[in-house]
């Protein structure tokens, strides 16, 4: 589950961020610092795969599946 055992105190000290109170979190990453390079890598891979599979499905599976509706 998503809870962690020490977090029951997490809103007791408002000066601390959620990350600082959560023992599973090693460091807090702010917006200026964060570069989602892993996300970009994954999404680019997905895009490449989708384009290849589209080319295959459209031009090989579909294009080579005659008879087709020609009019």
């Amino acid at each position: 589950m998503a809870e962690n055992n020490s977090s029951s105190s997490n809103k007791s000290d408002p000066s601390q961020s959620w990350e600082q109170q959560n023992p599973e979190i090693e460091r807090e990453i702010g917006i200026e610092e964060y570069q989602p390079k892993g996300t970009l890598t994954f999404t680019l891979m997905y895009l490449g795969l989708v384009v290849l599979m589209w080319l295959f499905m459209y031009f090989v599976e579909f294009g080579g599946n005659a008879p087709s509706i020609i009019e």
Binding site: A2, I25, E26, E28, P36, K37, G38, T39, F42, T43
Partner: peptide, 30 residues
Amino acid sequence: VASMEHGARQRGGKGYFAWVGKLPWDRPAF
């Protein structure tokens, strides 16, 4: 995915792919 990566990196994830392993794969809701 960027939000998940943010979580994984806060949990100590590194690299382009390796951060995925730092996600809580032992929590059913996640």
